[in-house]
């Protein structure tokens, strides 16, 4: 019996084909995405740059509020006056019957600042979508090749999501730290050492946490559409696209 016939006999049943599916273990996906980021480091930096800035701005604003809250909570009248002078919307004397804790809690960014933060995050997300669409276009051939080698749509999707997730985490973390440091420096300049002395470490941690989460979330949000485009592409469309 020829070798070819042997090979064919285990192909005859359709069930036999389905039994053995294609896989891409999570660890391997992670390995591939890390490699992709490393090799295309410059490209990744560009994708991440706007995210770093937007997240830094967010965490800068939040830190400013943290500093103000710390000063107010100290209960010292001259610090309160300093805040009022700096433009915070506060009565010069503590209103009776309101605990400094509660008052400090309301002391967040002004509506105008909030709008600017939201706007900058929005612009940054659009920037990420744009950068990721370009990245996908550059990688049409690679995506097509992987599909020819048996990759399923979701392997491709997962690779892009992992890459964006990692870029997002790193970028958002750098941005968050940057924002806190600058925010603190500005606080020191405006209010002196009291700004740092009264600052609650928990508030700072919360600011870092929020900023990283928002940054990583936006990075993922920005890649969903480009990754879906990449994953759904049929192999020949991907191959025909010349880079």
């Amino acid at each position: 019996m020829s070798q070819a016939e042997g090979a064919s006999s285990n192909q005859t049943g359709k069930s036999a084909r389905i039994a053995r599916q294609v896989v891409l273990p999570f660890g391997k996906s992670l390995e591939i995405s890390i490699k992709s980021i490393k090799v295309r480091f410059f490209r990744s930096m560009i994708t991440v740059a706007s995210l770093v800035l937007a997240v830094a701005f967010l965490s800068f604003i939040l830190t400013g509020a943290n500093v103000a809250a710390g000063l107010l909570r100290s209960g010292e009248p001259q610090l309160r006056l300093a805040l009022v002078e700096a433009g915070y919307d506060l009565p010069s004397l503590p209103p009776p019957g309101v605990a400094p804790q509660d008052e400090a809690g309301k002391l967040s960014a002004s509506p105008k600042e909030r709008w600017i933060v939201i706007l900058s995050l929005l612009v940054c997300t659009v920037g990420i979508v744009n950068a990721q669409l370009m990245a996908v276009t550059e990688r049409f051939r690679e995506i097509g090749t992987m599909k020819c080698l048996g990759a399923l749509d979701r392997f491709i999707l997962r690779l892009f999501l992992l890459e964006a997730g990692m870029q997002g985490l790193v970028g958002a973390f750098i941005g968050a730290i940057l924002g806190v440091v600058v925010g603190l420096l500005v606080g020191l300049v405006r209010f002196g050492l009291a700004a740092a002395a009264n600052l609650s470490p928990l508030d700072v941690l919360a600011t870092l946490g929020i900023s990283v989460a928002v940054g990583a979330g936006l990075s993922l949000l920005g890649v969903v559409y480009p990754a879906a485009v990449a994953a759904r592409m049929r192999p020949i469309e991907a191959m025909r696209a010349q880079e």
């Binding site: 389905i18 053995r20 294609v22 599909k147 020819c148 080698l149 048996g150």
Partner: peptide, 11 residues
């Protein structure tokens, strides 16, 4: 289907 096609391309 998509899985079987991927299998075909793979194996």
């Amino acid at each position: 289907d998509a899985y079987e096609l991927a299998w075909l391309r793979n194996r």
